[in-house]
Simulated scan of single mutants.
Amino acid sequence: MTDLQTDAEGRLRHLLSLEGLPRPELERLLERAQRLTADAHGGTAQRGVLAGKAVCTLFFEPSTRTRSSFSLAAQRLGADLLNFDASTASTTKGEADLDTLKTLEAMGVHAFVVRHKRDGAVAELAAAAEPGTVLLNAGDGRSNHPTQGLLDMLTLRQAKGADFSRLKVAIVGDVKHSRVARSDLHALRTLGCGEIRVCGPASLLPDDDTLRGCTVTDDLDAALDGVDAAMMLRLQRERMAEGLVASIEDYHRDYGLTDSRLARAAPDAIVMHPGPMNRGVEITDAVADGPQSRVLRQVANGVAVRMAVLEALLG
């Protein structure tokens, strides 16, 4: 993966995963995204950066936040944007993913923002792409969602500063099925987070090395005690087998974030969620819409982060 992501001089040529991304590169992307936040939400100051470049959002799974913010990011930078809808394209007739990529490459598309249900699918396309073609992983299977990881780190930096070594962060919920959790864990480790706590029922925790270096518990109250940030995860019922949770009501009772539970965290703790939220399951309305919530700030930061990544790869 690392060899695919960088060229012989160490320059970023694709963004497939945050695993193995050097800390200086990760921090450079975050700092550039911070500088782009004003331009991300209006204006034409950056419109010349990708003028003449073509960016295709190639989504084989549904998306609201990621696809919309990548589209806005490309347009803010002046790129020509092509939105590919797999439900109405030749993929429904049996066309292979690689043939779709090659067809669009032949039309002069320079960058592909790809979401796919299969682990490793985006890396496979990157390996087969022509020199100079850029692949950005917008979420593949359970494996990676690197720009979500970056926007989560930007949100944390804005709230808590750049020194992650003093932070205690809790990641709560369905880690087993979450590509967001994996990208957040890669980034938190790279940035030297002081303590990473992971909480969830055993049935929803991965059994590989995903949780290395983390404090793991099934006790939500203990996980939240004194933390600086609580990162809640969506219960991904569409990806799981029946029986992994006894019931939605039981899950909310044991792992839902409420006002009373949030009171165990540090007084200035922030609450994050990648969306879409299952309100009343992993998070209550009072917390999701409360003063400590940074959920909409995460969404806002998505445009700036994706502008920074597109600029780094194509600018």
Rank of each mutant, 00 (worst) to 15 (best):
Q236Y: 05
Q236E: 10
E238G: 07
E238W: 07
E238L: 05
R239V: 10
R239I: 09
E242I: 12
L244A: 13
L244V: 15
V245I: 15
V245T: 05
A246M: 01
S247D: 11
E249D: 15
E249T: 12
E249Q: 13
Y251F: 13
H252R: 14
R253Y: 00
G256M: 00
T258R: 01
T258M: 06
D259S: 14
D259K: 02
D259Y: 00
R261G: 04
R264L: 15
R264N: 09
A266Q: 07
A266Y: 01
A266C: 01
D268T: 12
A269C: 11
I270W: 02
M272D: 08
M272A: 07
M272E: 06
H273S: 07
H273M: 11
P276Q: 02
N278I: 05
N278K: 05
R279F: 09
R279N: 04
E282K: 03
E282A: 11
I283P: 00
T284E: 11
T284H: 01
T284V: 06
T284K: 00
T284S: 15
D285Y: 06
D285E: 14
D285H: 11
V287R: 06
A288R: 03
P291E: 13
P291Q: 07
P291Y: 05
S293W: 04
V295F: 08
V295K: 10
L296F: 15
L296S: 14
L296K: 04
Q298D: 10
